[in-house]
Design a protein around this nucleic acid. Structure first.
Lengths: 352, 352
DNA sequence: TAATCTTAATGAAACGGTTCATTTTAGAAA
DNA sequence: TTTCTAAAATGAACCGTTTCATTAAGATTA
């Protein structure tokens, strides 16, 4: 049973209200054909001024709103983009989300935000759902997984760009942060300030970003003849792990000059350990972090670190995606965009 | 010109790939009518087992994916929800986003994440766009504004629930955090621990949440005959403001027992000021914050504060919205859901 | 004035599903 | 074998747009 509220509007039997003024109503009242109304809506220059104003007026009086679903069906274009992220609440990705949504919005696109919860099966399902909704493109931060079916992903023909994590064997455009370069720069900053014995507190081995950061540190150290494998400590990405590694290093080594922590959370744990042992930062030991999370500038001392420009990463990903959607990049193969970090100099490194 | 890749699939002239296997293809190959295929897809029990398996098999071999756009147009239901937030990257809202997306996902809904950037005009535009996309419902964190057109909002017939901020005169369901109760509880916690001279460092007057927190503090103070209007300091929500207010209070008052900061950021600023003045926390002065932002537990001392369960707030908002969509709540009027905070006891309050 | 060329407007088909009144089928009962 | 009935299957209409071949009207030229 339909309950009518206004002309052309009603609550359906499920109590869902839909505004039902259609393009046909507009056409009839304006005294033109539906094609003409459509042309006005799409700003095609084939309509006479007389009819244009007539149509616009009736649109206003009828409070007509074009139905984008119907337009999408007809045009085969939805102006919707899917953004798939392992954890939507992670402070790491909030700036990325912002960069992506704001840039897409500026181009008239809307974004479906989806959380894969770090689960490869969920990620797959989400991508399938997005494809069924005929989204025009996908921006994906892939889940780490060795169960990944590359063939299946390769067969997806909707434009897609990966962010922040590479997938071996997958030939897709990707925007990635320069972990190597950031670590290299951070380490060189310490070296330039006359620190010699610089340990690294790194994350797990299976993680590519942490491997890259280790390599950046190692390269800088080797170039300055400071490398020594005893300076390497590995754990996971947690604050606790940072604490443990710092304690361990203080027990094993003497006269540490500085600490390169592969993440700000590790640095935080290390900071706690140093305070507990009454080691002064930066007077006794300097410490540099990686990532610039929100709290880093509020720590005591505020943490010198490498900032990852996630907003820009998101923005870049969008512009690549939009190019692909526009069909400009017809070439085979794929591109890799490496976004550089920025050294945020604060108070945890002694400049000498 | 269409470039054909596979049967029924092609790149259109804009280079957009669309999988074009339709329900008709499935019907033809399975040797049944489209209606039957549709019934299988929608799991209606009117199809014989024989045909059901036959259809499912051809769906699999053809790799057929139903087009949700077409289904939406026909069903007048999109299974999409709009989530409108002033700032998608704000750490305050990341848990809310998570609560909303995860809960909706569990019910088969997808979410459009939209950022109003704190701008009322943008918010209006977003809502209009969402309505044009025939989303089934809206979850809105409204922008503060005195330019708000209540009539226009009232006339929206799509289910909508407001979160975290009330709009005067708007009769919509709303889920809101109990600012009064949280402040009341925090203050009483200080009082219970024998603090008498408790100042409040509050946010701006025009902000309802801060007004409510002030009221909660005041009520607790009055009930214990501790209230005195000299104990009230007001600024904005920034760290700097917290610092300034703390310095000012130390200059004006003697023997402050404790500080109730209306936000964790204010508390952080106050903490900085106290450290600078060599006032020990919690030994000389206790401090309690409000909000439990990510960094609070990492501060030195870790900050005792009121935690706002944003994940649950999001979850609650969704369940109310889904009820409205299902059309269960046919009654007139609207409901207000007040979600209580939780006292996180850490190390910035001296328990005595 | 007739013929030709532009420009504007038209309206039916298409997009890919769902729905439902109608028809067909199969099985049971007579 | 015929009749009846319930279950299953059908297919055309519909959802609200866009698109484009066709038509109509007006302007220009010979």
């Amino acid at each position: 049973m339909k309950r009518f509220i206004l002309e052309n509007s009603f609550y359906d039997d499920k109590n869902n209200y839909k505004n039902m003024t259609t393009i046909k109503d507009v056409a009839k009242i304006a005294g033109v054909s539906v094609g003409t109304v459509s042309n006005v809506l799409n700003e095609l220059d084939t309509v006479s001024d007389k009819n244009k104003t007539r149509v616009m007026d009736t649109i206003k009086t009828l409070r007509y709103k074009p139905n984008k679903i119907a337009a999408s069906l007809s045009k085969k274009k939805t102006m919707n983009i899917g953004l798939v992220i392992p954890d939507v609440s992670s402070p790491f990705y909030s700036d990325l989300i912002k960069g992506v949504t704001e840039t897409l919005d500026a181009h008239g696109y809307n974004v479906f935000l989806c959380s894969s919860s770090g689960d490869i099966g969920k990620e797959k399902k989400i991508i399938n759902d997005l494809l069924a909704m005929w989204i025009d493109g996908i921006i994906l931060i892939p889940v780490y997984s060795n169960k990944r079916d590359i063939k299946e992903m390769e067969s997806i023909n909707t434009p897609m760009v990966l962010v922040n994590r590479e997938i071996k064997g997958l030939t897709r455009d990707i925007v990635i942060f320069d972990n190597f370069g950031g670590a290299y720069e951070a380490t060189n900053f310490l070296i330039k300030n006359n620190h010699k014995k610089i340990i690294i507190l790194d994350g797990p081995k299976y993680s590519r970003p942490f491997e890259d950061r280790l390599l950046g540190w190692k390269t800088a150290m080797e170039e300055n003849k400071l490398y020594n494998k005893n300076l390497v400590f590995r754990g996971d990405f947690s604050v606790e792990s940072g604490y443990d590694m710092m304690v361990k290093s203080l027990n094993e080594l003497k006269e540490i000059d500085a600490v390169f922590a592969s993440s700000d959370l590790i640095a935080l744990g290390a900071l706690n350990a140093l305070e507990e042992k009454n080691v002064l930062v930066p007077d006794d030991i300097s410490i540099i972090g990686f990532g610039d999370i929100y709290l880093s500038k509020f720590l005591k001392p505020s943490l010198t670190t490498i900032r990852r420009p996630f907003y820009n990463i998101g923005k870049t990903a969008v512009s690549i995606l939009l190019e692909k959607i526009a069909g400009k990049s017809d070439e085979e193969g794929f591109k890799k965009f490496v976004i550089k970090g920025k050294l945020e100099i604060r108070n945890s490194v002694k400049e000498k």
